[in-house]
Write a protein that binds this DNA or RNA. Structure first.
Lengths: 134, 134
DNA sequence: CAGAATCCATATGGATACTG
DNA sequence: CAGTATCCATATGGATTCTG
């Protein structure tokens, strides 16, 4: 099936393709995955693409998540500058989360991941079911 | 900074945006991240977008990875139908890895992640350095 | 409401040694 | 060469309780 579209590379051809990334990790793909690859980060980011949301709203939008994990993942997204956190000094407290300018640059990737998931979930779950059943 | 581009959503507006995913996870984004979100999967997939590679070539392309992790992550990618594994019954053994047809559908996302990483690594590392220094 | 703190189980991943 | 197998440290994440 995967024939001439995947040329077999010799070590020389492979080296010719190598780029020096000038990156602390081996490859910038790792950075992007580190930033949105957490168990819940992608989903959080996705929901925030729809607009600013409060902590409780996010929690209700993501059924499986615990309060603790939502807090932790939001803090990491905030630390990496993808999400802005605004605290309103009221009683009871109100905290709003929104994508930052840089966070918004990830929107195309998030939506591409959404579309891919919708498109290929049957394929993936089909394979997994087959293998765990055998 | 992140002003009118992120409208504050009421609970009613938020519900109107909800889609029923018909998905085992809460949201298809989770599936996509589950499939390529592993510590090394993205990088492995990226290198395979350049062509078919042998086990040892992949290992040399990804400096930090151990033999064990490369094996495990390749097995998962194979189980999810993203990577084809071909064993040549020779001595010494030769095993080649290539993106499957479905795996190739992830190429746009992988390359978008590469570009994003190149573009924003300074931003992210800048923030992280600032915070860990304080 | 939006969390912080604590406790604890499991998953993840590294190092090393061995093998067909 | 391309793995397996084993051991072990740490990271991740859930459940629960408490608070400004």
């Amino acid at each position: 099936m995967s024939d001439q579209q995947n040329p077999v590379l010799t070590e020389a051809e492979r080296k010719a393709l190598d780029r020096k990334w000038d990156c602390k990790l081996g490859c910038p793909v790792e950075l992007t995955l580190e930033v949105i690859g957490g168990r819940w980060k992608g989903v959080i980011m996705y929901h925030l693409t729809k607009g600013t949301l409060r902590f409780g709203q996010l929690k209700r939008l993501i059924p499986g998540i615990t309060q603790r994990m939502l807090t932790l993942q939001l803090r990491e997204l905030e630390a990496d500058g993808l999400v802005d956190r605004t605290v309103y000094p009221e009683v009871p407290p109100r905290v709003e989360y929104a994508l930052s300018d840089v966070g918004r640059t990830l929107q195309p990737i998030i939506h591409a991941m959404l579309e891919w998931g919708i498109e290929h979930q049957d394929y993936v779950y089909g394979l997994r079911g087959r293998n765990t059943a055998s």
